[in-house]
């Protein structure tokens, strides 16, 4: 049984609009038998944090194309993307790159 883990989430580039404009969220993921991974985190965000328009944040199993994901300030592509297993105090950032500049 894994203990509950505390995660620090940030939303930027306009993505925060889907979360009532709140950019930073400190959340605690409940304990479960297997370790949490990013894929499950997305489902959890969708069910518990997302205020509107889920299709603008998630697409299928993953994030919508155009949203950058950083895990502890590193490209999630280097961390295994959806398969990365979350650890206590991890910092996950979602930045939307759509219509900016």
């Amino acid at each position: 049984m894994a203990a509950p883990i505390a995660i620090h989430l940030e939303f930027g580039g306009g993505a925060e609009l889907l979360f009532d404009g709140v950019k930073e969220h400190h959340v605690t993921l409940p304990s479960q038998s297997e370790p949490w991974d990013v894929k499950q985190l997305l489902v959890w965000i969708r069910e518990n944090l997302l205020k509107e328009r889920p299709e603008l944040f998630v697409q299928g199993d993953s994030v919508r194309p155009g949203i950058l994901v950083l895990i502890n300030d590193a490209d999630w592509e280097l961390m295994g993307e959806l398969e990365y297993q979350l650890q206590d105090q991890d910092n996950i950032v979602f930045i939307s790159t759509l219509h900016g500049g």
């Binding site: 580039g13 609009l17 328009r53 603008l56 155009g66 950083l70 300030d73 790159t97 219509h99 900016g100």
Partner: peptide, 24 residues
């Protein structure tokens, strides 16, 4: 846009998100 997104984050470049005509 990925390079820019990362640069801004890693080197703390401030930007202000202002909704446009096609937001949401």
């Amino acid at each position: 846009s990925k390079e820019i997104g990362f640069y801004n984050r890693l080197f703390e470049v401030q930007s202000v998100f202002i909704p446009g005509l096609d937001t949401k």
